[in-house]
Design a binder for these strands. Structure first.
Length: 476
DNA sequence: ATGTCC
């Protein structure tokens, strides 16, 4: 990105003034190097978003931002319904409520190391992974409706997990406002065989070791110490969320025309929050959030079953579960006044700071855990929400490394077998049904996640707490 | 991300 087109606010913040149809500014959080590597498309897309009706504050880009469908991935934008604010399917993303949850095994590296291969094989055999992977659960119509309304709370009721898990999930495991009737029959049919499956692309299940600690007090309050072994699950709402995205994109294109909304880009299709299509989408999207929460809950249950057989002492207590593709109604300060706004976070993690009333007691002092997944074979990071994030980004932070190279380019550059061998030489076991998938996800195809989280920390979006490094990765 | 093109 051309740095000369931006006004520098600080070492880690850049601004584009609102001109030519922009209703609010764009603010990008990144250091000069990350900004230099960022695609011009991020600037163009963020500028386009500021032209949508009812946008408030600014359109924000996180340090891991890259080119997405309509909205940049790593983008945050909030809209006010009383100002004709809109909701956009492209502003949430196709993998609705894709997210990350991290579990504490309660074990140290030395206890896991001799059984790493056994665990990787057993997890790979138990958790369905890959394109079109199918699970063992088949929900009938009534169960599907209950799942879409109940989320992880429903999953726990079905025996997939523990009631104490729910405290450690955004929305306490159940997103209010879900309307299963706003979800097409086709979307539900696609989801029927896919409950409890990991999917493909950047989704994974990883065994990780806590490495460096950056904030000792918060790490201790999260129960993290160097050498501890964690399990992280990264996946979303599978076919259901994707189909909802497809269904509503079409309806929103018509709705935008009908409501006279001028779209700078067709991909920004949207509908007023207070309109039939807008309300239906929000109901369907909340149902997809519940689907993703239930999905991660079932995979957690499968993971615990595997550990119970191999390492019966493993606790696998849930640290936290975050979603990074959502639109949520939240109260935020807009020009110094508290207002209810619809915050789109696409490839951006909610990062509520200390004292936020929606956080469970365990995180009232520290701020919520912000889980940042790296690429396969690189570190992941655990951060904590800050008070400053509220005014900087509607309490949002980055979500991952962000691609530096297209999938196509990655496949031309590496072979899957080569990537697996290289990682094995570094002690990282990879199990995947797809060599191509592994090549697409080669660590070199991603930006350096370390630079991304440093930028997020220095910009004040979230506070660095701990680094975790991979031991074994089950890859879709 | 995705029954990687209805």
């Amino acid at each position: 990105m051309d740095i000369n087109r931006l006004t520098r606010l600080s070492e880690f913040a850049w601004r584009i003034e609102p001109v030519d149809g922009m209703r609010v500014p764009v603010i990008i959080y990144a250091d000069e190097i990350l900004l230099g590597e960022m695609d011009e498309k991020v600037r163009e897309q963020a500028v386009n978003v500021t032209m949508l009706p009812g946008i408030v504050g600014a359109c924000y880009a996180m340090p891991d931002a890259h080119w997405g469908y309509g909205f940049p991935i790593g983008g945050v934008a909030a809209f006010a319904p009383e100002q004709g604010g809109v909701v956009s399917a492209g502003g949430v993303g196709f993998d609705i409520s894709c997210g990350v949850r991290t579990l504490h095994t309660g074990l140290k590296r030395e206890q896991i190391d001799p059984l790493k291969k056994t665990l990787a094989d057993a997890l790979y055999a138990t958790v369905p992974v890959g394109v079109g992977s199918r699970g063992h659960i088949r929900l009938d119509h009534a169960q599907m409706e209950e799942m879409l309304r109940g989320g992880a709370e429903w999953a726990v009721r079905q025996g997939y997990g523990r009631s104490e898990d729910l405290e450690r999930i955004e929305e306490r495991g159940r997103m209010a406002g879900a309307e299963p009737e706003a979800v097409s029959v086709h979307a539900k049919e696609r989801q029927r065989p896919e409950m409890g499956t990991l999917g493909s692309g950047n989704h994974y299940l990883e065994i990780q070791e806590v490495g460096e600690i950056y904030d000792a007090a918060i790490a201790a309050s999260f129960g993290l110490a160097s050498g501890d072994v964690m399990v992280t699950i990264h996946c979303g709402s599978r076919g259901l969320g994707h189909q909802i995205g497809t269904d509503y994109l079409k309806r929103m294109q018509a709705a935008a025309v009908q409501h006279g909304i001028v779209l700078p880009d067709r991909e920004l299709a949207c509908a007023p929050i207070d309109s039939p299509v807008g309300r239906d989408y929000l109901g369907a999207m909340c149902a997809a959030i519940n689907c993703a929460l239930a999905n991660r809950q079932i995979i957690t249950h499968l993971t615990r079953r595997v550990f119970a057989e191999i390492l019966p002492d493993a606790r696998l207590d849930l640290l936290y579960d975050v979603s990074h593709n959502t639109c949520k109604v939240e109260e935020h300060l807009v020009h110094g006044r508290k207002r209810q706004v619809y915050v789109h976070r696409k490839g951006a993690t909610r990062a509520f700071g200390p004292g936020h009333p929606d956080l469970p007691k365990a995180f009232r002092e520290s701020g919520q855990p912000v889980l940042i997944g790296g690429s396969m074979g690189t570190a992941s990071y655990i951060l904590a929400g800050t008070a400053s994030g509220e005014t900087l980004s509607f309490a949002s932070a980055c979500h991952g490394a962000g691609r530096a190279m297209s999938r196509h380019q990655a496949v031309r550059t590496w072979g899957g077998r080569e990537v697996v061998d290289e990682l094995a030489a570094r002690g990282i076991i990879v199990r995947s049904p797809s060599w191509r998938g592994v090549a697409e996800e080669a660590p070199g195809a991603y930006k350096d996640v370390h630079d991304v989280v440093i930028a997020a920390d220095r910009a004040g979006l979230a506070r660095l707490v701990a680094q975790v490094t991979p031991m074994a990765c089950i890859k879709g």
